[in-house]
């Protein structure tokens, strides 16, 4: 296994870069990070739309959410890769395709989490805010979302971790992320499949477990600083 790592660590880390496109673990991490950064505000927006007092806003978003949630991610990947270019005539690269797919898929799940968080609050919170003269938007931003996001932060973190794992589906459209590279290595070496896939699994585990531990520690520190969530309040302000 040591030999395997010695021979292929660079390939595993960055793919064919700089002689080809950037790939490997670096691509996986970049793709996950970009998906998270883009999906979070979109998920917030969709989540808020899900509980909008206006039907014209609520219903189309509900339809989108239900459709995407009822379809396997793999299918959304295919759909984005084959169907979208055929219809629009614009051919997008594998990385862009995968990114768009992840953002859409993630945003939809985040929206449901955000919605649940908002609905977990007593009605008096919105009334209290509105009675002071705050607009609906201000009430959401200053009173509702900071509390709602705090309530559902464990679910948010699970969803973010799921995103990292979901990048592996890029394999199916030939995106040279870390799973694809591992398969390539396996083909080259041929006799060490078990070792290759143990290394791959360990890589994902360190990434995902590390992130959820980090989130846990961060949350505990916030909890210690105050009984509730002024720090998260500022996060919500920024991401809106």
């Amino acid at each position: 296994m040591i030999e395997l790592i010695q021979d292929y660590w660079l390939y595993f880390l960055v793919g064919q870069y700089p002689n080809g496109p950037l790939g490997g673990l670096t691509l996986t991490i970049l793709l996950s990070a970009a998906a998270l950064v883009l999906a979070m505000p979109l998920g917030l927006l969709l989540g808020v739309a899900r509980v909008s007092p206006f039907r014209a806003v609520r219903w189309p978003v509900a339809a989108l959410v239900q459709v995407v949630r009822a379809v396997p991610l793999l299918l959304v990947v295919f759909w984005a890769y084959f169907f979208l270019p055929a219809v629009t005539g614009v051919k997008t690269g594998q990385a862009t395709t995968m990114l768009m797919t992840l953002v859409l898929f993630d945003a939809v799940y985040l929206a449901e989490i955000v919605k649940a968080g908002i609905q977990s609050l007593p009605k008096g919170q919105l009334e209290g805010a509105r009675s002071l003269g705050l607009s609906y938007g201000q009430a959401l931003r200053l009173v509702i979302l900071p509390q709602a996001l705090r309530h559902v932060s464990p679910s948010l973190v699970s969803q973010l971790v799921a995103t990292i794992k979901a990048t592996s589906l890029g394999y199916i459209i030939g995106l040279s992320e870390v799973s694809f590279i591992a398969t390539q290595v396996n083909t080259l070496v041929f006799t060490k499949a078990v070792e290759v896939y143990i290394i791959l699994a360990a890589t994902y585990f360190i990434l995902c477990f590390g992130l959820s531990r980090l989130a846990f520690l961060l949350e505990r520190r916030l909890n210690r600083r105050s009984a509730s969530a002024p720090a998260l309040a500022s996060v919500a302000k920024v991401s809106l």
Binding site: P122, G124, Q125, E127, G128, A129, R130, S131, L132, G133, L134, S135, L142, V143, P146, Q147, R150, S228, A229, P230, L232, A233
Partner: peptide, 29 residues
């Protein structure tokens, strides 16, 4: 909103904002 800003309302169940301190509750609006 302008109308409500000019009318103080006190609820049966207080409806304070739990993520803000007493002072911040009074400063928010």
């Amino acid at each position: 909103n302008a109308l409500r800003a000019g009318i103080g309302f006190v609820f049966q169940h207080f409806n304070l904002f739990p993520h803000l301190s007493a002072l911040e509750n009074c400063m928010l609006a």
